[in-house]
Design a protein around this nucleic acid. Structure first.
Length: 594
DNA sequence: ATGAGTGGCCAC
DNA sequence: AAACGTGGCCACTCAT
């Protein structure tokens, strides 16, 4: 029998329905202090759209109510009910409901979406898909009929009385309720998981506030720079066509033209075409190649960043969306634009300075930056428990210099030494799960040399290899016994699941995932310490704030106190603070004078 | 026109 | 024995 056969779905249309609804409310949610809520809205924009239908439910009943018609009742119920509210993707629904006049305290909300992502990071987390796995295979089966109607009439055009619309609306809170129940079974006793879930469930609201606050941008400056780029791009395009009969954006055409001028190509793309990437173009001393490269770089910057600064901002601020668990490791991701991948400022990249300098603190404010140093390497030391690595992080000198001196038994090695650099590359390769071949190539060694190098480092820090081995063995065993190759994060209790045959990647998932989780915990601490309203953007292991100048000193002290942490792991975690009025002009905090 | 796939490139 | 991880997003081509 299908789990949903027992469920009753209702559309509240008259007084009789209201009485039945009230009866259910008393028997169920009010008594158990638990219910699920969902909304159907006119669209997806938090700013311009609103709630059309609000649905409530538990494991047995789902109720759909048109907001316009029943707003009085709905406001009353939402205010009266003070138990726990389950939602799926609460950062979407809660603000929508708040817009309608009811502010549900976020501390009472338990979002089921993070629960799904923590347990099944490799599977679709959408409500209907997840419910199809855990509640009833039929959970999403009649979606097609609704989709067809939506395609014809648009979201806001489907009448509320249209059965597939309200029924599937009313079903959603029921699925949310049952999905949560099913998943909780697995983790009820799991303390780490409960902690992990708490963090994920809470940190969403801090991130959501960052999106609302937005990033301050110098729109005039962005516009000037964009115009320059557009002019250059058009000129370069015309020039390529006129001089070489080639469109600079067409790689195939450019390669063909360059071949005619006698240039030879060696590197292929994945599908076998001649590669024409930055590396290749830089090697070709030909005006066409150089123009293609320069135009490509500038166009990318103009369209990917500057356009967002100019077109998608309100009152000088852009509002990127932040996905709290965007990556399979539950790292956060940022989009529209992706502020986590602004080009870094370096000598040979003046355009990067432009992109970063468009971000500018408002009047009387300053940007603060606080980032962990070498967090992933520290976590490698912590997780592998290798005594040598742990010891090296307790010394007051450069970590990789220490390693190089130990491995090569040469105390004169300094920061500029090639061997220090090689070890650093080696360590990161281990964190990423690179193989010997790949590593040899990056370091420009032969495979034989690499093997020797690898052996000598491994001999000094045997914990790394045994850690990798242990993870893989565990994952492979779990795949055999439970069908899925996974490991569990010791701090958050979340699962990391490998693609089959890529169990080695779990080492990276654990490190990256633990770093991401630890960072989220720190965001919560910073919020609790009073910095919540100033945080504007997370960048993996760095938090950016916009703070009134008078409060900078105070904020920095909190950052230093919170982000430095000697107690949590087997190695201390260190953080660094810098500041700047523009992002591209970041300076060390020690140079601050007010 | 729209969408999927490809190639490319930026960050941590 | 052997495997460099996670993302977003753009211009382009080729298909419908």
């Amino acid at each position: 029998m299908s789990a949903l056969d027992e469920v009753d779905l209702h559309l509240v249309e008259g007084v009789g329905d209201v009485l039945n609804f009230e009866d259910w409310l008393q028997r169920g949610p009010m008594r158990h202090g638990l219910m699920a809520i969902d909304t159907e809205t006119t669209g997806l924009s938090r700013r311009t759209d609103h709630v059309r239908l609000l649905q409530m439910g538990d494991g047995t009943d789902g109720w759909a109510m048109a907001w316009d018609r029943w707003s009085g009742l709905l406001v009353d119920v939402l205010t009266r009910f003070n138990g726990t509210i389950l939602m799926h993707n609460a950062p979407f629904d809660q603000p929508m409901i708040a817009k309608m006049g009811v502010e549900i305290e976020t501390s009472r909300i338990q979002d089921v979406l993070p629960l799904v992502k923590m347990l099944e990071p490799h599977l679709p987390a959408k409500l209907k898909k997840a419910a199809a796995r855990h509640v009833d295979p039929q959970a999403g089966s009649a979606q097609k009929e609704l989709d067809a109607a939506i395609a014809k009439l648009g979201w806001a055009g489907v009448p509320i009385e249209f059965e597939p619309y309200w029924m599937y609306g009313a079903l959603d809170p029921v699925l949310t309720f049952l999905l949560r129940q099913a998943l909780q079974e697995h983790v009820r006793e799991d303390e780490a998981f409960q902690h992990g879930y708490d963090v994920e469930n809470s940190v969403q609201w801090i991130l959501s506030r960052m999106t609302d606050k937005g990033i301050p941008v110098d729109v005039e400056y962005a516009r000037e720079q964009r115009e320059k780029i557009t002019r250059y791009s058009a000129t370069a395009y015309d020039w390529c066509v006129k001089e070489y009969g080639v469109k600079p954006g067409s790689n195939a055409a450019v390669v063909e033209r360059l071949m005619r001028d006698g240039w030879e190509f060696a590197k292929r793309t994945e599908t076998g075409a001649w590669a024409l990437d930055k590396e290749v173009l830089e090697e070709i001393d030909h005006p066409l190649a150089q123009t293609v490269l320069r135009r490509r770089q500038l166009d990318k910057i103009g369209s990917t960043y500057l356009d967002h600064y100019i077109d998608h901002n309100r009152e000088g601020r852009v509002h990127p969306s932040i996905n709290p668990m965007g990556a399979r490791t539950s790292r956060m991701s940022v989009s529209s634009p992706n502020f986590q991948n602004l080009p870094r400022v370096s000598e040979d990249n003046p355009a990067a300075t432009i992109v970063r300098n468009c971000v500018v603190a408002g009047q009387g404010k300053v940007l603060l930056f606080c980032d962990f140093s070498q967090i992933e390497t520290r976590l490698l030391a912590h997780l592998s428990q290798d005594p040598g690595l742990i010891g090296a992080f307790h010394l007051d000198e450069d970590f990789f210099v220490t390693l190089a001196r130990q491995v090569f038994k040469d105390p004169t090695i300094n920061k500029k030494d090639q061997r220090r650099n090689a070890i650093k590359t080696w360590v990161y390769a281990k964190i990423y799960g690179a193989g010997l071949e790949k590593l040899a190539k990056t370091l420009g060694m032969s495979t034989a040399e690499m093997r020797q190098f690898d052996d000598s480092i491994t001999a000094a820090y045997p914990g790394i290899r045994s850690f990798q081995l242990q993870i893989q063995t565990l994952a492979i065993r779990r795949a055999r016994e439970e069908g899925v190759p996974y490991v569990v994060c010791p701090m958050s209790g979340r699962r990391h699941v490998a693609d089959r045959g890529k169990e080695y990647a779990l080492v990276n998932y654990l490190i990256q995932g633990l770093a991401a989780f630890f960072f989220k915990k720190k965001l919560l601490e910073l919020d609790a310490a009073g910095l919540g309203e100033y945080m504007i953007l997370p960048v993996h292991d760095e938090i950016i704030l916009e703070v009134p100048v008078e409060q900078a000193q105070w904020a920095v002290q909190i950052l230093i106190d919170v982000m430095n942490d000697a107690d949590t792991f087997r190695v201390p975690v260190a953080a660094e603070v810098s500041y700047g009025y523009r992002w591209g002009e970041k300076k060390d905090w020690s140079t601050w004078s007010d």
